[in-house]
């Protein structure tokens, strides 16, 4: 694998995982997955959590697969892999315990707060 691709692998994986889980979230809300049973929790949370854990596992594999190269190119490639893993961990952790599909639309409340 060429060096630029190696360096891009982690962030690319995050981009894919982020887009896929966001899309699955929207799809699940629209199709009513929260009301469907699953081996653990409801189908919506089960799918999202499984997706997140799978993404983390693959992110970890990418980190582990990076050669131990001390050159600048090696450092950048390893940093790229870690960026991917940490981003998957931190941007998608809300699948753990937030309510899935409930919406708060505060815009009208904001205008209600303005002085008359």
């Amino acid at each position: 694998m060429s060096w630029p691709l190696r360096a891009l692998l982690g962030p690319l994986w995050w981009a894919f995982a982020f887009a896929a889980i966001y899309a699955l979230h929207g799809l699940g809300c629209a199709l009513g997955w929260t009301a469907l049973p699953a081996p653990v929790w409801d189908l919506h949370r089960f799918v999202l959590l499984s997706g997140w854990l799978l993404s983390l596992a693959i992110g970890l594999l990418i980190v582990r697969a990076m050669p131990d190269d001390k050159s600048t190119a090696g450092v950048i490639a390893r940093a790229g892999a870690w960026i991917g893993l940490v981003s998957v961990l931190l941007t998608l952790f809300p699948v753990l315990n937030l309510s899935s599909c409930e919406v708060t639309a505060p815009a009208e409340n904001l205008f209600a707060m303005l002085p008359p």
Partner: peptide, 19 residues
């Protein structure tokens, strides 16, 4: 954030914005 988006999606983008 104020257009009426599910809490979980808000949290995805809030976390990414902080990150």
């Amino acid at each position: 954030f104020t257009v009426g988006i599910p809490h979980m999606a808000l949290a995805f983008f809030s976390a990414a914005s902080a990150l």
